[in-house]
């Protein structure tokens, strides 16, 4: 499970380097996200641009990360590929995340992020 992180202003961007966010990696993903976001800025964007497959375990882990961040911080998603978007939409979990088409939109959409 590989994640790459960078910080721009008060935004932490975490890119999932894997193609599949599934039952094989979901627990490790959640643990690594916990470490990557500890003591970080309030806004966290998860860049899923590389991820072409998300199953229910992967989705559960993304929701789990959202909960880990607590009420004062928020998790946003970016770079949703078609099949990942299908799972988010059918489960209606797209309603609880702010979703950006591209990571660039996500960064630009936020005042003072630069």
């Amino acid at each position: 499970m590989q994640l790459t992180t960078r910080q721009i202003g008060n935004t932490l961007i975490i890119r999932v380097a894997e193609r599949r966010l599934d039952a094989v990696v979901s627990i490790r993903f959640k643990e690594q996200m916990r470490e990557a976001t500890a003591d970080g800025p309030p806004r966290v964007i998860l860049d899923l641009g590389n991820v072409t497959f998300l199953d229910s375990s992967g989705l559960g882990a993304v929701v789990g990360v959202h909960k880990l961040l607590g009420p004062a911080r928020r998790l946003e998603l970016a770079g949703i590929t078609p099949n990942v978007g299908k799972v988010l939409q059918l489960t209606r979990m797209d309603s609880i995340f702010t979703i950006h088409r591209h990571i660039a939109d996500a960064i630009c959409s936020h005042d003072g992020a630069a």
Partner: peptide, 21 residues
């Protein structure tokens, strides 16, 4: 039914996805 999004479910998506697709 899929679990309600506002309850922030971490599971229970599998069978509803099969059904919907």
């Amino acid at each position: 039914r899929p679990p309600h999004p506002e309850t922030l479910p971490e599971g229970g998506f599998g069978w509803p996805l099969i059904r919907l697709l």
